[in-house]
Design a binder for these strands. Structure first.
Lengths: 288, 288
DNA sequence: GCAAATTTGTTCGTATGTATT
DNA sequence: CAATACATACGAACAAATTTG
């Protein structure tokens, strides 16, 4: 048997989808009809459909049927733009402004504050380069767009920042001007640069529940880790954000990029200047 | 039945893996033994294992057994660093140097050249903003590290660049100094900036075969699209690269980032200066 | 609002094929 | 070659979700 039957059936259905014979949103024939059509057992048909589900081509709805997926309009997170602006030297637009400009309604929970000790269970220990046992403050938020769960975000700060006067970090609740501006004004701490790492991995149980992902784990999670540094190169913050891969994409701008490209094409309304200051928004977004 | 049996079994096995009761590389009990242990049918055990496979926790080897996955050492692609350098104004280190410095052995096929007409089947049409029917040159490469398939990359250029004198773009084969430098010297075209977009999606058949991915499509593909612009804001190149998500991650540096962080921690050898010029390598890498 | 029909989801049993040791 | 272990395929029954009459 060179090619398993279930895979041959999946290939045939995939071809129909890719050629447009089956259009997005359209219902496939039922498992029983497909069983008769392909002269295979229902279980074999179901194996073929499972393969198409994993590849993101179809979805099943119990009691209804199997449907060709309709593409979600992705939300674009700009990780950067003009690095000077993104470094937190200026920039007064906020993440919320950015999202509104794209005709979407953002919302986020007030940060929950936690206190940890540097060590293996705290995911920030390596990045913040703190010795074992050093206190670390975490600020955690859930973020929504159009009431759809969009991202989970946790920032970690060395407790020494609070001892230096940035006491609001310890209080649960928003810091409207953003923590980058707050730390600059309160402690004189200037964010000189940052490094983002981007990985793709399977969701854990918390993420599956929050994002309402299918239980079979076929949707990946994109995790960004932003380590921010002051002018001495000391890490001052780690922000870990997770996004479901099915409704998010990321963008990075460098040098001179035309405004109409740097500013996503979704909603061209508002924002006269645009240009490369979208970075400030993303920075705002990434500093809980 | 609140929770299906196969999911309860998967949860139990996942717990054992996460608590270290089952260590990476360790073999699970066979399906028959698990069937007896959980008092379920072998098919139900297999459903549970399928779920763990999708979540990337275990892998099966026919004739051998089921094993807890061992983490792959990921290859880190730096999308940026110092934007001035990355813009192609200077930088003489190459992608190959970068990889060698990390004690890995890179290899890539000579570019295959193709000629297309702007229009819906050519994926560069939108980004290059060319009218329907305009000729486009593509250069496609397969790239390996340590003989493992690492990425597929295709760059698209407007044919007008060749007519302006950059004839080597049409010849299959390497352009050792990189196309950014070549275009600057030959046509006086300066790359003033670029925009990267990053999306995660399911693999297609070509990618599944090249990367030797499991046929069930559980490993996602990370696709980066880099649109480069000249000083007038005209798009001059689109480079599309695809990477399997199970062995790749990405990094972006902004502003001042300490050298020991900006330079990946894998192989600390060689490279005295390091700093933020790793960007030039990535840029080189991304210009076929 | 309820019952029936439809459709997918879960679980079992069984048989045979393929890969590895 | 034999034994072991996973892969494919079939058939059957009942459960759960949804729509329809």
């Amino acid at each position: 048997m060179p090619e398993p039957i279930y895979r041959a059936i999946a290939d045939d259905l995939r071809r129909q989808i890719e050629t447009g014979e089956l259009r997005p949103g359209q219902q496939l024939r039922t498992e029983i009809e497909l069983r008769d059509h392909y002269e295979a057992s229902r279980n074999t048909i179901r194996d073929a459909i499972k393969l198409l589900i994993t590849r993101g081509l179809v979805e099943t709805r119990p009691g209804q049927g199997t449907f060709v997926v309709e593409t979600i309009v992705p939300f674009v997170t700009t990780l950067s733009g003009d690095p000077q602006t993104a470094s937190g030297a200026e920039g007064d637009t906020t993440y919320t402004d950015e999202v509104i400009a794209r005709l979407r309604v953002p919302r986020h929970t007030p940060p929950e504050v936690g206190i940890h000790q540097a060590g293996s269970p705290v995911p920030a220990t390596g990045e913040l380069r703190l010795p074992e046992g050093t206190p670390i403050v975490s600020r955690h938020q859930q973020r929504y767009i159009d009431d759809i769960p969009w991202s989970l975000q946790t920032s970690f700060y060395p407790m020494s920042l609070i001892e230096g006067g940035a006491t609001r970090l310890l209080r649960a609740g928003d810091i409207p001007e953003g923590t980058v501006a707050y730390l600059r004004e309160k402690v004189g701490l200037k964010q000189a640069g940052y490094r983002d790492t981007i990985i793709v991995r399977a969701p854990d149980n918390v993420e599956t529940a929050f994002f309402k992902l299918p239980e079979d784990g076929r949707i990946s999670i994109i995790e960004t880790r932003r380590t921010a540094f002051d002018e001495q190169g000391t890490p001052i913050r780690l922000t870990v954000s997770v996004y479901p891969a099915d409704r998010n994409q990321f963008a990075v701008n460098f040098g001179e990029v035309p405004a109409e490209v740097a500013d996503p094409p979704s909603a061209a309304a508002s924002k006269q200047d645009a240009g490369s200051d979208a970075s400030a928004d993303a920075e705002q977004e990434l500093s809980t």
